[in-house]
Structures are given as C-alpha cells and as structure tokens.
Design a binder for these strands. Structure first.
Length: 581
RNA sequence: GGUUCGGUAGUUCAGUUGGUUAGAAUACAUGCCUGUCACGCAUGGGGUCGCGAGUUCGAGUCUCGUCCGGACCGCCA
C-alpha cells in the first residue's frame, strides 16, 4: 500500500502514528537547517518536515525535487510547535524518514494555486494541471453533488433513469445537428441528439410514466461563455400530468437542491407570463434580483414636438434610484452602451430628478418642467433618481432597455451572485414568425401543446396562440424549460401544418413519433434543465467552462488535444466521403 | 456572417507625442539562512514585442493584411 492516509485527514488525534502519504509537492520552504514541504492531493495539504541535524541526506534529497513532483513518504505524525490555524491539518506535521519519488515533473507553465498566474488559454491547454487547482476541483465536486442530489430526489419520486441513443436521425428543425457519417450505409448520416426529445416521448407511450436522464446533448451553433457544443441536461418527462403538476414537481427539485447544496431556503416560485416579462423586463429571462421595471411612457410623451418620441412605437423608461448626480461622462458612457450594435438603440434620453426638486433632462427643449415632473410621477421617481428612456420599434426598444437595465444592475452592484431569485416564465407563444423564411417556427419545439383555449386560433391567427410551455429562470439565466406535449395525432398534424410542413415532410421526419401516438399515447409533458448552467449558478460564476472538466474554447476547439482535426484519406474513403478542394 | 477588446520574458502585466541597451512582479537556477506556511535575503539566466507588408532617418508604439484568444450580436426549436 503506497498510502495509509490522505493529505486532508490527519490531525492532532493522530499524534505519534506512523503514516504513509502520497501526493504532489505543492511548495517547499528551505530554511537552511530545516525544509518544509506542502504535500498536496485531492483532499488537502499536509506539511512534511525535514531537519538537517536529524537526517542530512533526506534533506538534500527533498531539496532537489521541484514542485509538482509526485512522491510517497513515510514518517511519524507530530504536533507542530508553530501551528497554522488556517489549514485543517495545521496542528500537525510529518517527520519524514523515507522519500520515494514516484514521478518527476517538469516545471508547470503556471502556478497550481487558487490565484494562478496562468491565463485562460494556457490553463485550457494544460487542463489536466488546471484541474489540480483547488478552486477548479471544487467546481467539479459541486457538479458531482448536484448530480447525486438530483438523482436522489427524482429516484424518491419514482423517476427512472433510462439511456437513449446518441446516434439518431437528423431533423432540420431547431439548432444545427452534429452529423456522423455511417460507414455501413454510405451516403447516409446519423445526427447527435440536440436533446432526447422524441425518445422520452416514446418512453411515455411505453408507459415509463416518470423518466429522467442526466444526458449529454449536442448543438452545432456558435459558442458563448454559457454555451458549449456539447452540454449536459437533466432531462425529465412525466405522464398523466398537467402543467401545474410539472411546475410543482420541478420547482420542488430546485428548492431541494438549494437547500441541500447551498443551505438556502427558497420560497415558492413566482410566476410571470411571457407577455409581462417582455413588457416589464424586455427579456424572456428577467433577472428579478432587482427592480427597475420598465414604465411605458408612449402616450404621455407623444405630441410635444419631439419627433423621436412621436415616431416611436414604444417609449419606455426605467427609474434608477439615487443616480441623479450622474456626470456628463457617465451619461455619455451609457449612451455609447445603448448605441453599440449589440444593443442597437439610436440614443438615450435622461431625466435627472435633482435633489432640489428641479429637473434636468436631455429633452428640456421639448418638455416643460411640469411635464418632466409628470413623467417622473409616472415613473415613481423620487428626488435624486435618474430616469433613462429609450424609444423606437417595440421589440427592439424592449430588448435594448432590457440590456440597459442589466447594465445599470451591474453598475450598481444589484446582481449579487450569492442571492438567488427564481421564477417561472409561463404562457410562451407557440409560434414565432420568421421574416426571412416567411413562415412560422415553433418557439419551443414542434411537439409543444397549444393552450386548449387558444387551439381554435391555430389556423386563423397562429401568432396569437399561447403554448403550455414554461421556463425556469434564476438570476436572469434560463436554467430549464419544458412544455406539455401534443399526444394526439390530429393536433400534431395541425401543428405541422401551421409550421408549413407538408404531410409527406412531417411523415418522413417525425412519422415514427406520430405513428406511436396512434397506439395509446398518454397525456404527458416534461422539462429539461441545463445542468452546466445550474452548476455555474450554484458556484456563483458566469461561465460554465469551469464546471466542465474538458470544455471547448470559443471556436469549438479542444485546445489540449487540438480537436477537431483532419482525418486520413483512408478514413474518408471508408465513409464514402470526399472533401471539396 | 458581424461588432469589440486583446497578443511584449516560462507566466501575469507595464511600456508616455514614434527616439539610446524593452522593464516590474512572479516562476526558474545558484548561494546564505533551524519553525516556515505567499518564508526571508543576495546573485543570475531568460525577449523574433503573434506573423507579414507598409509609412519613417528610426516602429513594441502608426497604417493595412493575416493568424490566435476573450466578450458580445446574429444563431442557439
């Protein structure tokens, strides 16, 4: 046996014990007569002590070893004369009598510490070293615990985990598929699943009325800090349920996880309709940790000669508390912010509600002091507040004001990663009009059930139909989404028709599912949580990358292994593929 | 496909209106040091300033192109 204990467990009660320890040399402190070495493993750090007077040979031996060398030592646990209260093993040290070098290490390109001197790119290239760092390892441990607790919770409710295939049929709806050529079927391709959607619905038809799977999903779209080409979902489906049952079951899961993992008590989740989310926050995933809801001003401000407002479909503002002292420079910064192409506003109007009761605005020329006061009243602005107003096309203005609201939240530190605000956004539209393709697309996916009371509009006014679809939003992050599914072949047919599918196309792509609906499909619905996002949220981070052991970079590359890469002519030939020169 | 920021020592960064030999910290190496725990002190090595072209007497610095990386928009049912 190479080790009797880990480096995190020894304490004063082990005093006098002969132990064997293994690990990596974190750091050594050579004081001349004595040398101290921090030995590290997954569990912690234990100090090894070497004394020139006691064993000069051993001292010389340990001094010759660089950091990250893997060693095994044997020795005796002793009480330290100078204790270190900052570490769990700080009361003891090991008086080493034998060292075995298990493997030498080159000097690592960055320091293996919480505040490493390595940049992101370098850390990703040497990810196996990066993962030795405490803070990164803890993220993966957190991920593990969230996974275990999720399984415990769902298992207790009779959910069973069933694996579904990774090599499946490609469908053109939704995100781009990752495509896998089939050697045995030349010219034909599998796709990697964007989600196990069809399979979990088929499992409902099979009678597995409570299914879940913590499963990898694949989407060939551009990446973001919170988007990877392969990511993990907690994928769930239930039969014989209403939307209410699903919301109850899975908000209880979220509450359970917050309690178990973070020790935080969360009350029942608020519900907000999609329409309200857009109207008050300009986003279908509002960050409700802070207020600053939109106030519509269109009617109030029009017809006073300010053409920007007069021509706007929507004029709306937010009231920023205690910022009337903002300088010209700060306001210019905000104007630049909203004018960035990513935000897309034409300009920014401000009204300062000065503490002396006067008003100063960028539209003084068009509005009297009384009129500014009445706008301030509508916005419920107090003396000392700042009102920021955008105007223009309804959708664009909502979106831009939503971005501005988040920016102000950031500037005013209202987005504390350690406070959590959870809500359901419900009543999403079923369909979304695409101007380029001149057709409707499913906002969620084509199997989402319309609300029964809206079904009759499916043919007459499809854009108005609301869906039995819902998202769980935490701190402005969409952590999960789902819907009640269509389980009736006729309704599914009408849905495909609304999506401009011909019967042949629908049959070719989803015939297996619609066929299944004819053999006794129970009413069902489900939800899928973004597991990586949930982990990053619990870990208080914006990026999901540090919660994934081996993530891809911005351009979808694994910089460590340098995937993707070219393949040999032989491989291409076997797959009956040729590359365009 | 687009916007934007960045690329200088092993690493993280600084580098003024273009101007002598490109700096700091840290890491590394060597020496000294018996209670350190971010040990301390001293000395030393370490640079194709991403790459290419251009402007200039002169480019790390300016211009254009290109490659790489980050954030974002589009995209992500």
């Amino acid at each position: 046996m190479l080790r009797t204990h880990t480096n995190g467990e020894l304490n004063i009660t082990h005093k006098g014990t002969e132990v064997k320890l293994c690990g990596w040399i974190q750091r050594s402190r050579d004081l001349g007569g004595m040398t101290f070495v921090d030995l590290r493993d997954r569990y912690g750090i234990t100090q090894l002590t070497f004394n020139m007077e006691v064993n000069a040979n051993l001292c010389e031996q340990i001094r010759a070893l660089g950091r990250e060398t893997v060693i095994a030592v044997s020795g005796k646990v002793e009480e330290r004369s100078n204790k270190n209260a900052k570490m769990p093993t700080g009361d003891i040290e090991i008086i080493v009598d034998e060292i075995q070098v298990l493997n030498k290490a080159k000097t690592p390109p960055f320091t293996i510490e919480d505040h490493s001197d390595g940049g992101d790119e370098l850390r990703m290239k040497y990810r196996y070293l990066d993962l030795r760092r405490d803070c990164v390892r803890k993220n993966l441990e957190l991920r593990h615990r969230i996974g275990i607790e999720t399984r415990n919770y769902l298992n207790d409710l009779n959910f069973i985990e069933i694996e579904t295939p990774f090599l499946i049929k490609s469908t053109p709806e939704g995100a781009r598929d990752f495509i896998v050529p089939s050697r045995m079927n030349p010219g034909e391709f599998y796709a990697l699943p964007q989600s196990p959607q069809s399979y979990k619905q088929l499992l409902m038809v099979s009678g597995f009325d409570r299914y879940f799977q913590i499963v990898r999903c694949f989407r060939d779209e551009d990446l973001r800090a919170d988007r990877q080409p392969e990511f993990t979902q907690i994928d769930c489906e239930m039969s014989f349920v209403t939307q209410e049952d699903i919301l109850d079951t899975f908000e209880a899961l979220a509450i359970y996880l917050f309690k178990k993992i973070k020790g935080i008590t969360i009350d029942k989740l608020a519900r907000m309709t999609y329409a309200d989310a857009m109207k008050y926050y300009g986003s279908d995933k509002p960050d409700t940790r802070f207020g600053m809801r939109f106030i519509e001003l269109t009617n109030q401000v029009q017809n006073h000669g300010f053409s920007v407002f007069d021509q706007a479909e929507l004029v709306a503002g937010i009231c920023v508390e205690a910022c009337s002292e903002y300088t010209r420079k700060q306001l210019d910064e905000l104007t630049d912010f909203v004018k960035r192409p990513q935000v897309g506003a034409q300009g920014l109007v401000y009204i300062k509600c000065n503490t002396d009761g006067t008003y100063k605005s960028s539209i003084d020329k068009f509005y009297s002091s009384d009129q500014l006061q009445s706008i301030a009243l509508t916005c419920q602005a107090k003396a000392g507040d700042l009102i920021l107003i955008l105007a223009g096309n309804r959708n664009k203005t909502q979106k831009a004001l939503g971005e501005l609201r988040l920016e102000m939240g950031n500037r005013l530190n209202l987005r504390n990663p350690n406070t959590f605000s959870l809500l359901w956004v419900v009543d999403f539209p079923l369909l979304e009009w695409d101007e380029d393709c001149k057709r409707f697309f499913a906002m969620h996916h084509p199997f989402t059930a319309p609300k029964p009371e809206d079904q009759n509009m499916l043919e007459t006014d499809p854009g108005k139909v609301r869906a039995n679809a819902y998202d769980m939003v935490i701190n402005g992050v969409e952590v999960g989404g789902g819907s009640i599914r269509i389980h009736d072949r006729e309704l599914q047919k009408r849905m495909f028709k609304a999506l401009s599918f011909t019967e042949e196309e629908a049959q070719k792509q989803f015939g297996f599912l619609m066929d299944a609906f004819e053999y006794g499909a129970p009413p069902h619905g489900g939800i899928a949580f973004g597991f990586d996002r949930l982990c990053s949220l619990f870990g208080g981070a914006d990026s999901i990358r540090d919660f994934i052991a081996f993530p891809k970079n911005n351009s979808g590359r694994d910089v460590m292994s340098d995937a993707p890469s070219t393949v040999s002519e032989v491989q291409l030939k076997e797959l009956a593929l040729s590359l365009k020169k």
